[in-house]
């Protein structure tokens, strides 16, 4: 019995050569990648920065000369955290909404079962091109429409097209065509076929994709401020750069719970949808 087990085990292919080649490749890549890093030691300020961020995160008012909690965390001014977070979420919301709508034609025009194998490649290439352009480029380009939050909305919308339409395409290519044939046999018109055969198959999944992307977009919207496209990003990054740790702390106090809550509800909602 034990001999047989040993024999079968020995007959199994071990892939020794393949595995060692892979390991060699990864090691080579690692060594090559380490070359990119020139370690100059820890910045003199580094320790101070870490200590201060930790201290202010626990209690943002640690600097008695510059109390921030009342002024930035619990205030409805436009420069305070609640309004900036509202703006960030709203940028993500309306950006995702726009992106989700723009993606519908993109997705249909790139689905194999709608336009055929070859023509779907054209759409897929366009989608990849849109997707690889970094979000800041969109932000800067759209500042020409209107600076501030609206540029952020458009940047979020366009940069969402890539992922949303890619996931839409998967849903569309999964359509059960048997339902359409069944509708055909009842004598349904083209409009009725779309209304009762296609839309019900797509809605839940499309919604789920959009909600998932909204979650990502809230995070993306927190950095758009760097190029002047609204949201809390400018305040946070500027405060980090100028060692204004109180503001850094209250900004993080704003971002972290909000993003956690959104992630929680998004997961709950998507679980119910699918």
């Amino acid at each position: 019995m034990s001999d047989n087990v040993q024999k079968v085990l020995r007959q199994e292919p071990t892939h020794k050569l393949r595995n060692s080649l892979i390991i060699l490749f990864i090691l080579a890549m690692t060594v090559w990648s380490i070359l990119a890093i020139d370690y100059q030691g820890v910045n003199d300020l580094g320790v101070t920065v870490v200590r201060n961020i930790a201290r202010f995160l626990v209690w943002p008012d640690s600097n008695p000369n510059n109390p921030v909690i009342a002024k930035y965390l619990f205030s409805l001014e436009r420069f305070a955290v609640p309004y900036l977070m509202l703006e960030t979420i709203m940028i993500a919301f309306i950006g995702t909404l726009l992106g989700a709508f723009i993606s519908i034609p993109f997705a249909f025009l790139s689905s194999k079962n709608i336009v055929g194998e070859k023509r779907s490649l054209i759409g897929a290439t366009v989608i990849t091109m849109v997707r690889t352009v970094p979000i800041f480029i969109w932000g800067i380009v759209f500042i020409r429409v209107q600076g501030g939050a609206m540029a952020g909305v458009l940047a979020i919308a366009v940069s969402s097209i890539g992922m949303i339409s890619k996931l839409y395409i998967e849903v569309i290519e999964d359509i059960d065509e048997g339902i359409l044939e069944a509708l055909d046999s009842t004598g349904a018109t083209a409009f009725q076929k779309i209304r009762y055969g296609i839309i019900p198959q797509l809605t839940a999944n499309f919604l789920s994709v959009s909600i998932y992307r909204f979650e990502i977009n809230v995070r993306n919207a927190t950095i758009l401020g760097l190029v002047g496209a609204g949201g809390i990003g400018f305040t946070l990054i500027d405060a980090l750069g100028s060692f204004n740790f109180g503001i850094v702390a209250v900004s993080l106090w704003g971002i972290i719970p909000v993003v956690l809550l959104i992630e929680y509800f998004s997961t709950k909602l998507r679980a119910r949808l699918t």
């Binding site: 100059q40 580094g46 920065v49 950095i223 990054i237 980090l240 993080l252 971002i255 956690l260 992630e263």
Partner: peptide, 28 residues
């Protein structure tokens, strides 16, 4: 893990840039 996930890479990069010097290290 959930708290770490709430912040985008760019914010971490700004933070680590303050600790180390400019260059590939904070990004990595």
């Amino acid at each position: 893990l959930a708290v770490l996930r709430t912040l985008p890479i760019l914010i971490y990069a700004v933070f680590f840039k303050l600790i180390f010097f400019l260059g590939a290290l904070p990004g990595t």
